[in-house]
Amino acid sequence: MNIHEYQAQKILKTFGIKVPYSILASNLEETVYAAKKVFKKTKNYICVIKAQIHAGGRGKGGGIKIAKSIDDVYKKSSNILGRRLVTNQTNKKGKLVNKVIISEYVLNSDKEYYVSIFYDRNIYKNIILYSKEGGLEIEDISKKIYFQKIDPYIGLQEFQIRKIAFHLKMKYSAFNNFIKKLYNAYIYSDASLFEINPFLITNDNEILAIDAKVRLDDNAFFRNLSYKEMSDEREYSIIELEAKKAGLNFLKLDGNVACMVNGAGLAMATMDMIKIYGANPANFLDLGGKADSKRIKKGLDLILKDKKVKLILINIFGGIVRCDIVAEGIIKFFEKKNKINLPIIIRLEGTNVNIAKKILNNSKLHYYYVTSLEEAANKIKVLLKNELRCFI
């Protein structure tokens, strides 16, 4: 689960990491009030207005502005709050800005640094990614980025901290305390990502985390119940929010091939195969281990709400799930629909698959049955190319 910058700052402060003095504001009156408090606190008539959305690239997208007076705060906040912000990490419509933070302005430093921590599932290691050139252009300096593998069972070691500090050309005494706290924040908040861009060294030889992006593992909320309250429903689309309430893992994408799969790994493999064969998935939809008729109905309902969808691929592996129950759920759903001008490709494998095939064959459902992902991808390619349609 993604969280906002102001929420990430709270977590960082909990672990003893310094962040700029900031106040959250939801309307123009609150931005003015917040700016007055920031000016009084810092004794400096300059502040930063930062849009709070679940997307990066805010600076280049116009979501971060410097203001030098109360009138300036009001004017620039009015151009951010209540408007859609388009960045390189949003779709063309952008994201609606419902909140901003008014933050103290930190004097430009000669050096801005970058660091992030995440888990690499391929090698079962935590990764610290870092660079001595942080800021807006971090995505354009890949050759100047270093990484350090951390064994999660052993944790961050002193020699690794010294190595990172050496590459950053920072004093070990300053960096040591910061990176240990940051690693602890990542571990004990059950995060899947902690990104600080940029951070810099203050005149007091302390490190200040200027901006933070944090993604939490929502499967671990039972250990940190307060984190669950950080979810912002306004950041989700109507379809994604509906799926979330139904307990389905759903993510809207920009393609036209709808996917309904059980298991995140199989879902990813399905989307990869679709891409390899030249098509684009319309969504990520994982029914999970309880692919019963109720969840199937909900999943198909969500798929059909997307007007861009031209084809539906149902790819289910019956381990715990019984294929015959899945087949019955599919048929029951489409029997209640009058007419759907969409081709349906079905692949079922596993428990009771032969019974499932008989159920499908005995139904009035028009569909294409495939036995492999490759066959499914080939069928998608042909159907989209010929703009073939099925009628139910």
Results as ranks from 00 to 15, higher is better:
residue 7 Q to F: 09
residue 124 Y to A: 13
residue 288 G to H: 10
residue 334 F to V: 09
residue 113 Y to E: 05
residue 239 I to Y: 03
residue 26 S to T: 15
residue 363 S to F: 12
residue 223 R to T: 06
residue 193 L to W: 08
residue 286 D to C: 10
residue 339 K to G: 01
residue 66 I to H: 08
residue 364 K to A: 09
residue 116 S to I: 08
residue 270 T to C: 09
residue 285 L to N: 03
residue 53 I to T: 06
residue 229 E to I: 11
residue 356 A to Q: 09
residue 266 L to P: 01
residue 354 N to V: 09
residue 194 F to P: 06
residue 259 C to L: 04
residue 343 P to E: 09
residue 141 I to S: 11
residue 130 Y to T: 12
residue 135 G to T: 14
residue 168 L to E: 04
residue 261 V to F: 03
residue 158 E to F: 00
residue 148 Q to G: 03
residue 380 I to G: 00
residue 26 S to A: 14
residue 130 Y to P: 09
residue 368 Y to P: 04
residue 125 K to T: 05
residue 325 I to P: 00
residue 41 K to S: 13
residue 314 I to K: 00
residue 176 N to T: 01
residue 104 E to T: 02
residue 24 L to W: 11
residue 36 K to Y: 08
residue 185 A to L: 12
residue 387 E to K: 15
residue 90 T to F: 06
residue 300 L to W: 08
residue 308 K to Y: 08
residue 320 I to S: 04
residue 78 S to I: 13
residue 358 K to T: 15
residue 291 A to H: 08
residue 242 E to V: 01
residue 318 G to F: 03
residue 259 C to E: 07
residue 28 L to R: 03
residue 95 K to A: 08
residue 36 K to H: 12
residue 344 I to T: 10
residue 333 F to L: 07
residue 188 Y to R: 10
residue 108 N to Y: 04
residue 153 Y to I: 15
residue 372 S to T: 14
residue 94 G to T: 12
residue 120 D to G: 04
residue 253 L to T: 13
residue 126 N to D: 15
residue 311 L to Q: 05
residue 32 V to G: 00
residue 258 A to T: 04
residue 130 Y to V: 10
residue 287 L to R: 00
residue 385 K to R: 12
residue 179 I to D: 01
residue 295 R to I: 11
residue 206 E to G: 03
residue 107 L to R: 11
residue 19 V to G: 03
residue 22 S to Y: 00
residue 73 V to I: 15
residue 100 V to Y: 05
residue 93 K to Q: 15
residue 15 F to Q: 03
residue 118 F to Q: 13
residue 130 Y to Q: 07
residue 52 Q to S: 01
residue 359 I to W: 02
residue 377 A to N: 05
residue 76 K to C: 00
residue 328 E to Y: 03
residue 1 M to S: 13
residue 302 L to I: 14
residue 92 K to F: 05
residue 104 E to V: 06
residue 250 F to Q: 11
residue 323 C to L: 09
residue 306 D to Q: 10
